[in-house]
């Protein structure tokens, strides 16, 4: 028969440390939980607000968010949030987060702000995995190409013009890389189509 006391001792010591450690972590978690939630809220807000001047709305973008169902025009497979920007309770701009699968590698997450009249207020790329140095010119910090969308709408450009120059449209492509800008142009274009189709429903949801 093996020495039982040794086994019990090992088990007890290990258990003691485990319980103490878990409790410590749990306490830290409790202590930091609120701060972390606040941080996450802030950082989301930061990316949302970079498209909108601070004085252009007076609601809380995050508190007024609402769920919209997945839609092929948005390139989404799960329901996502949309964020309305309001002045005194009236929505004037809706922020959508469409995805594009048409980039070189992986999904491109995009943020599009659309005025209720159907004009693009601004576009930002939230995350992507395009070729560094080639496809990443879609990032604002690497080039101002992404600004070319502001003010465009379905009315101002024809469907044919909503393409990169190589395909006969008005948007620049980068030398050597057509796929990434083409993906963004398409995604923005489709977001506008989505907005046009669901405008009333979106406004209704936004104003609830």
């Amino acid at each position: 028969m093996v020495n039982m006391s040794n086994i019990i001792r090992s088990a007890m010591v290990l258990a003691l440390f485990a319980v103490c450690g878990t409790l410590l972590v749990a306490i830290t978690y409790e202590l930091t939980r609120e701060q972390i939630a606040e941080n996450e809220r802030l950082s989301l807000l930061k990316s949302l607000t970079q498209l909108l001047p601070a004085e252009s709305y007076n609601n809380s973008l995050l508190d007024d968010k609402f769920l919209i169902e997945a839609d092929s025009l948005l390139g989404t497979t799960d329901s996502t949030y949309a964020y309305p920007a309001k002045v005194d309770g009236d929505s004037h701009t809706i922020l959508l987060t469409p995805d594009s699968q048409e980039g070189y590698t992986g999904t491109i997450n995009i943020l599009v702000a659309i005025n209720i009249d159907g004009t693009v207020v601004g576009v930002r790329v939230l995350s992507h995995r395009e070729t560094p140095g080639l496809g990443d010119l879609i990032e604002e910090r690497r080039s101002n190409w992404i600004h070319t969308f502001a003010g465009r709408s379905l009315e101002s450009l024809t469907t044919k013009e909503w393409q990169v120059k190589k395909d006969g449209g008005v948007f620049d492509q980068f030398t050597g890389a057509t796929i990434t800008p083409r993906a963004i142009v398409k995604a923005v274009h489709r977001s506008l189509l989505y907005f046009q189709k669901n405008r009333d429903k979106l406004l209704e949801l936004a104003n609830d």
Binding site: G21, L24, T28, Y29, L31, T32, I36, N39, E40, L42
Partner: peptide, 19 residues
Amino acid sequence: MIIACTVTGIELAMNAWFH
């Protein structure tokens, strides 16, 4: 266990204060 707890604590703290 000790290291894991320490790291988790630090991670939480960084998340809170150096987000």
